Computed example of a mutant assay.
Amino acid sequence: MIKKIVLLILLTNSFMLTSCLYRGGPVYVGEERAAKKRIKEILAAIENKDKEAMKALFSKKALAEVNDFDEGVDYLFDFFQGDVQSWEIDAWSSGESIERGKKSIMLRVWYIVTTDKEKYMFFVIDYIKDTMNPDNAGLYTLRVIKAEDEETEFGYWQDMVIPGIYKPEQ
């Protein structure tokens, strides 16, 4: 009888606490689903060269803080070459803030995207939920680099927080 109770508790906990640890933070199944949905939306906007669709993915806060969003979109559409063959989540982490019953969830995701011409790495900061400040909801940061440039173009996520689309200085 005790073995059955212990087994039931373990099974219940495993269902309730299903999560993975990546880059130091728990990420729950809903967050993984949100990350997969977001990369599909980003890639569709890039493939269709749809500026309005890309802009719609970003939060009001990011759009208000970026100097020239259209310049970033133009850069990204020119930079990204080829037809997408595959993509995968390389790593992710999340942060959650709760205050007076309101919640903010920031998702940080690193993706690997392979086209028929190049291999890219994407870094995204996405506020998948923000009832504390609804203007934060949506993408805040999108950084796309060639995978071969990871050592020079990627760093700690805290150093890559910029509003809008990353464009290296010329």
Rank of each mutant, 00 (worst) to 15 (best):
E88K: 14
K117M: 14
D78G: 11
D90S: 08
D50T: 07
K61Y: 11
N67L: 11
L76V: 06
K117N: 12
G101R: 08
T114A: 10
A44Q: 14
K117E: 15
E41C: 06
R108T: 11
G72R: 08
D70F: 04
R100W: 09
F122W: 03
K51W: 02
E47N: 12
Y75E: 05
I112N: 01
I105C: 04
Q81A: 13
S104P: 01
F69K: 12
E52D: 14
K55E: 09
M54V: 07
Y28A: 03
S19Q: 12
E41N: 12
F122Y: 07
R23S: 12
Y75D: 05
S94C: 05
S19G: 08
V66P: 01
M121Q: 10
F15Q: 08
M106W: 04
Q81S: 13
F15I: 15
E118D: 12
K60G: 03
K102W: 02
G95E: 14
E47W: 00
K36H: 12
Y22H: 10
V124E: 14
G95K: 08
D78M: 06
S14M: 12
S14F: 09
M16G: 04
L43C: 06
R108M: 14
C20R: 08
F69I: 10
L43S: 06
S14Q: 10
V109P: 01
E47A: 15
V73K: 10
A44T: 15
T18P: 00
R100L: 13
V66H: 01
V124R: 00
W110D: 04
K102Y: 07
E32Y: 10
F77V: 07
I128W: 01
Y22R: 10
E118H: 05
P26C: 04
D116I: 05
K49E: 15
K129H: 11
T114D: 09
S97K: 12
T115S: 07
K103R: 15
E41H: 08
G72Y: 06
G25L: 05
A34P: 03
V27M: 09
G24N: 11
G30T: 09
I125L: 12
S104R: 13
V124W: 00
S97R: 11
